[in-house]
Amino acid sequence: KLATQLLVDLAEGCHTHHFNSLLDIIEKVMARSLSPPPELEERDVAAYSASLEDVKTAVLGLLVILQTKLYTLPASHATRVYEMLVSHIQLHYKHSYTLPIASSIRLQAFDFLLLLRADSLHRLGLPNKDGVVRFSPYCVCDYMEPERGSEKKTSGPLSPPTGPPGPAPAGPAVRLGSVPYSLLFRVLLQCLKQESDWKVLKLVLGRLPESLRYKVLIFTSPCSVDQLCSALCSMLSGPKTLERLRGAPEGFSRTDLHLAVVPVLTALISYHNYLDKTKQREMVYCLEQGLIHRCASQCVVALSICSVEMPDIIIKALPVLVVKLTHISATASMAVPLLEFLSTLARLPHLYRNFAAEQYASVFAISLPYTNPSKFNQYIVCLAHHVIAMWFIRCRLPFRKDFVPFITKGLRSNVLLSFDDTPEKDSFRARSTSLNERPKSLRIARPPKQGLNNSPPVKEFKESSAAEAFRCRSISVSEHVVRSRIQTSLTSASLGSADENSVAQADDSLKN
């Protein structure tokens, strides 16, 4: 292990032709098999893994070397290190390495390699500790012929580059190093199909959405987006994914797998022009299946994007999809995704031109529960009313008269009656009930004795009459309010007539 670390330190600071010789020695160290011998017992696995620490030291050392060589000349050094790393990870899946030390190597290698970024000039870069990406002036992410390196360097940008540029090249004859992302992409596909350690798979799935944002990485080298989509959909639809995973937390289920895969599918929607129609349908189907899991909100957001990006695919699945959405409970976490999906859909009339009455009724059935102001915040309630109004205007004229009683009944049950079921009123009724029952229970537990009763009969009569009056008032709060309003209006009217009579009498006395 110490000798391997010494080789790594020497290679990191070497800029001459001896660098390749040092890498040859490190490569021989990495070539050791990580498969346990067949006769190895389970209690000896930890000791055997400790004997392979030099392999881990070599791989982690290459990660440090690549981070240094990416910004220094010659660029061919970075290319050689990158290829060695990718080849080593491929061996893991070729020979099915399952030892804990092998999983640790893959975890740290993917953690580093999935941080690679590219700008519009195809320059590769890595983020620093502050998250700012520094791009290399010597390494690009696409394949290029050595003699055409300078031509590639002087080509115009596709868009303004992001991030601070690296140091300027030493001279005009500098050759750019090619670090094609397709090599890593193929290893990522192998990981999605064969990885057995949940920690490694979770890391890859968590980092892929951010990497897919940099389309330069994908399009400048032959990366098959179709295969990526197929691998992701197979993970969700195939039963073998959960069987092969180990190291998963207790209670791990298909729902947890959906939570990890759906963000990658959402990021892949922007590549729909490069996906086969069959793959697009598979993607939409997987998102529909996710509606029954805890990732339902993410799936609804993804389907909203699909309705804009892939209208030809979503239009066929939309009638059944809208009916499925009615089975989702009206909760605060689902309110905004569902209502925004319906609001977006209302502005795309070509998608729902074939809707029948059942689909329009489903839209109103989804939106009406969110009009309850005692359960949802003001934004959700306003958005629900907006969706109902928009869809009522957009639905066909023959359907409107049939939906009017349905909508008014839903609004009455969710908006008007919600004020009668407020917690304050319920607590008031509970308190009044307890007050009504309390005197009775006290009389049963403690019967009054005439000799020891010091309270006069008049006081008892007053208290009983007050309790009886309170019971009468607490029967119905709404009736009490109505009666008080009527009494107030009658009182004001009587006072007004009394004032008029007094004024008339005063005038008569003055005349006399």
Rank of each mutant, 00 (worst) to 15 (best):
S49L: 05
A50K: 10
A50T: 13
A50P: 03
A50D: 11
S51A: 10
S51M: 09
D54R: 00
D54I: 01
D54K: 00
V55F: 01
K56V: 05
K56C: 05
K56H: 08
T57K: 04
A58L: 00
G61W: 00
L62M: 07
L66V: 02
Q67F: 02
T68L: 04
T68E: 09
T68F: 03
L70D: 01
L70Y: 01
Y71P: 02
L73D: 08
L73I: 11
L73C: 11
P74G: 02
A78K: 01
T79M: 14
R80D: 02
V81G: 01
V81F: 01
E83V: 06
M84H: 02
M84R: 03
L85M: 04
L85G: 00
V86N: 04
S87R: 11
S87P: 00
H88L: 00
H88I: 00
I89N: 00
L91V: 09
H92L: 00
K94W: 06
H95I: 04
S96M: 09
L99F: 03
P100K: 04
P100H: 04
I101M: 07
I101D: 01
I101Q: 02
S103T: 09
S103W: 02
S104A: 12
R106E: 00
L115S: 10
L115A: 14
R117K: 06
R117N: 03
R117I: 01
A118G: 04
A118E: 01
S120L: 05
L121A: 11
H122N: 03
H122Q: 03
R123Q: 05
L124R: 02
L124P: 06
L124K: 01
L126V: 09
N128M: 08
D130M: 08
D130G: 06
G131Q: 05
V132Q: 12
R134L: 06
R134S: 07
R134D: 05
R134N: 05
F135S: 03
S136G: 02
P137A: 06
C139Y: 10
C139S: 05
V140W: 03
V140R: 06
V140D: 03
V140C: 10
C141W: 03
D142N: 05
Y143D: 12
Y143V: 11
Y143C: 09
M144V: 10
G149H: 14
G149T: 13
S150C: 12
K152H: 13
K152Y: 12
K153E: 13
T154F: 09
S155F: 12
S159C: 13
P160D: 13
P161C: 12
P161A: 11
P161S: 07
T162A: 14
G163V: 13
G163H: 11
P164Q: 09
P164A: 11
P164I: 12
P164C: 14
P164H: 14
P164N: 14
G166V: 13
G166F: 11
A173H: 08
A173W: 11
R175Y: 10
R175E: 14
L176Y: 11
G177E: 15
G177T: 14
S178P: 04
V179M: 14
P180Q: 06
P180I: 01
L183I: 11
L183W: 09
F185I: 03
F185G: 02
V187K: 01
L189Q: 03
L189C: 06
C191T: 04
L192K: 00
K193F: 06
K193L: 11
E195L: 00
S196E: 10
D197Y: 03
D197N: 05
D197K: 01
D197T: 03
W198L: 03
W198M: 01
W198G: 00
V200T: 04
V200G: 01
V200K: 01
K202Y: 03
K202P: 01
K202L: 03
L203V: 11
L205I: 03
L205K: 00
L205D: 00
G206M: 13
G206S: 13
R207L: 05
R207G: 04
L208K: 00
P209Y: 04
P209A: 13
E210W: 05
E210F: 09
L212Y: 00
R213K: 10
K215I: 01
V216P: 06
L217M: 10
L217C: 05
I218V: 10
I218W: 10
T220K: 03
T220H: 04
P222R: 06
P222A: 06
C223R: 03
C223A: 03
C223Q: 03
V225N: 00
V225Q: 02
Q227L: 08
Q227E: 12
L228S: 01
C229G: 04
C229R: 01
S234P: 02
M235R: 03
G238Q: 12
G238P: 03
K240V: 12
K240Q: 13
T241L: 08
E243V: 06
E243K: 10
R244A: 04
R244N: 09
L245G: 02
L245V: 07
R246D: 07
G247D: 10
A248L: 13
E250F: 07
E250T: 07
E250S: 11
G251I: 03
F252T: 05
